[in-house]
Design a protein around this nucleic acid. Sequence first.
DNA 1: AATGATAATGGAAATCGTTTCCATTAACAC
DNA 2: GTGTTAATGGAAACGATTTCCATTATCATT
Lengths: 136, 136
Amino acid sequence: MTVGREAVLDVIAQSDEHLSAEDIYMKIHPFYPAVGLTSIYRTLDILVSIGLVRKLDFGHGRAKYELAEDSNGKGHHHHLVCRGCGRIIDYNDFIDEELALLKKTEESLSRKYNFRIDNHLIQFYGFCDTCKKPER
Amino acid sequence: MTVGREAVLDVIAQSDEHLSAEDIYMKIHPFYPAVGLTSIYRTLDILVSIGLVRKLDFGHGRAKYELAEDSNGKGHHHHLVCRGCGRIIDYNDFIDEELALLKKTEESLSRKYNFRIDNHLIQFYGFCDTCKKPER
DNA sequence: AATGATAATGGAAATCGTTTCCATTAACAC
DNA sequence: GTGTTAATGGAAACGATTTCCATTATCATT
């Protein structure tokens, strides 16, 4: 654990948003100008690989990162993605039902396709409050 | 509808795999050498926007495209993504249960967040048959 | 056929997030 | 304090996708 790595983890832990590598760089830079973007990427890879951080792709061309659910205080959640403004809403309604079904599905798929499943992704796409066009 | 557009849609319709823009270009080029990559991208955008084609991102850095479920003969399905070799498996086990829960969730989320949901994404990640490491 | 307006085209260049390279520096066991 | 190794950051490379722009096809109107 070096200064730079600590800083990256700190920033992610502090923030309750989904941060891109550059977001993180921006937040760190004022305090640790010596830490470069490359190291941020490297550190993120490590944090993801040890399971502390989750890498997310909402289709906006850049990866976002959030603290893994074990430590994020929000518990397991999924995402609502606005195609208008790109806003992401975390939700955990029905999360238990979802997880139960997912578990069941995972088990069945694992068996059927001889596949070891260790992660899943659920996202809803649409238009948020402010981006909804008036009905026509 | 121009020759190039027809060709793109044809290739997607014929194939039962998930094709990248370049895959499509490769398949079209021998027959229509005049059709450029740029047009493929343009056409794909159009096909996606009118709902004939679905754009997929499996996290391999390039978008993949498949025929929308209305016309693909496979019906609604979700994906199993192998992190080892990148293989994608389409499945539709429990699809009815999944869709039922998704529908219910969508309705609730729409109301709660005043969000118009028109699409969803479900993917499982893991390691396929051949990529599974021996248990240890 | 000739005209003119508009849509579609493809190749080159630009874009931009991410990776790779590599020479430098930090850490640390001996 | 010397040697070995891991970590670093800046520049350059990378690669999928977009943008630019001059050319070409389309087609309704004369």
